[in-house]
Amino acid sequence: MSSVDADEIEQALDDLFDQALVYHGYTDYMRDYEVVVQGSADPAAGQNYRRYLFRNCPKVTVTSTVGPEVWARSLEEKLIHQGVPGSNDVYAWGVRRQALYPGAGRLETSRETKRWSSRLGVPFYEVTLEGNSHEIHLLFSGLSVGDLEPGYMPFVVPAEPKTE
């Protein structure tokens, strides 16, 4: 996994266009935010998985882009297991992926990024990733991108509780 600078961050974000978002969340150590994508929103196109690790991420806002009227018709439990909906009137959560379309916005500078940059002494950025079921707004200081090996799991329940 390699770390990238601001110009490379822009290029990496451009590469997210129309990828299939299959997982997102904070890492198990709670500092960085990971986004796992499949090489294409089309499942038939292959299984190449990449991890976008947004480093030093103090703020993430995730909002559903599924409208309230579709939510209202998509509450049945069977939809979390159903791969393809029987109707366009519902959202089939069970597809387990969402198209990142239109994808990532441009890196933004704001009062908040300037404040974090000033306090920590490293550049901070903001970006919004938009898919067909979530909009993810991230505040972060760096990005690492790398391929994932089969079997990767973002969290595993330990056999014994950790003691401090």
Rank of each mutant, 00 (worst) to 15 (best):
S3D: 02
E8T: 06
E8D: 10
E8C: 02
E10Q: 15
E10T: 15
L16S: 05
L16N: 02
Q19K: 11
A20H: 04
L21P: 07
V22P: 07
H24Y: 12
G25V: 07
Y26V: 04
T27N: 04
M30W: 13
Y33P: 13
E34T: 14
V36D: 07
Q38R: 15
G39N: 06
G39M: 07
A44G: 05
N48S: 14
R50K: 11
R51Y: 11
R51L: 14
R51H: 07
C57I: 03
K59T: 10
S64W: 06
T65A: 05
E69W: 01
V70H: 00
R73P: 09
E76Y: 03
K78H: 10
G83C: 01
S87D: 11
V90R: 05
A92I: 14
W93V: 04
Y101A: 05
P102Y: 05
R106M: 02
S110F: 06
S110Y: 08
E112Y: 04
T113R: 10
K114R: 14
K114S: 10
K114N: 10
R119Y: 15
G121C: 01
F124C: 03
V127G: 00
T128A: 12
L129T: 00
G131H: 00
H134K: 06
H137V: 10
H137S: 14
H137L: 12
L139N: 02
S141N: 11
S144F: 02
G146D: 14
L148C: 03
G151T: 12
Y152Q: 06
P154E: 03
V156Q: 10
V157P: 00
P158A: 09
E164S: 13
E164K: 11
